[in-house]
Amino acid sequence: MEIKKVTCIVCPKGCLIDVKLEDGKIISIENYQCKRGIDYAQNEVLDPRRILTTTVKLSTGGVLPVRTREAIPKKYLKKAMLESKDIVVKPPIKVGDVVVKDIAGTGIDLIATGNAK
């Protein structure tokens, strides 16, 4: 049996959750304080994901803040960064507009988090 310690990041509390694994399967989750913690610990062990936040260039100069609409698998962060490196966006653009569809083949869009006129 293997125990993975996961620091929960759902809220600032930062609970240290124990996930017990046997043959790669979760057999129990302990020391959580809320339901969101269970979900987080489970995902963190089986399929860790992160929301990627970065910037892309604006054709008018400066940069536009963007993020993935949802969390993407952690292992795709670098690929998504490389893909967004050469993107140039033309204003006008507003919060929520799609900047790149299906970033790094994750099926998840990169969206604007700022406005540019």
Binding site: C11, P65, R67, V95, T113, G114, N115
Partner: peptide
């Protein structure tokens, strides 16, 4: 907020996770 492009804002006020620019917006 406009330069805090990372997420983690708004969990208490909006019950959702926003970036700094979105929270300000």
């Amino acid at each position: 907020l406009p330069q805090c492009i990372h997420n983690g804002f708004g969990l208490h006020v909006f019950k959702e996770e926003l970036t700094g620019p979105e929270y300000a917006d």
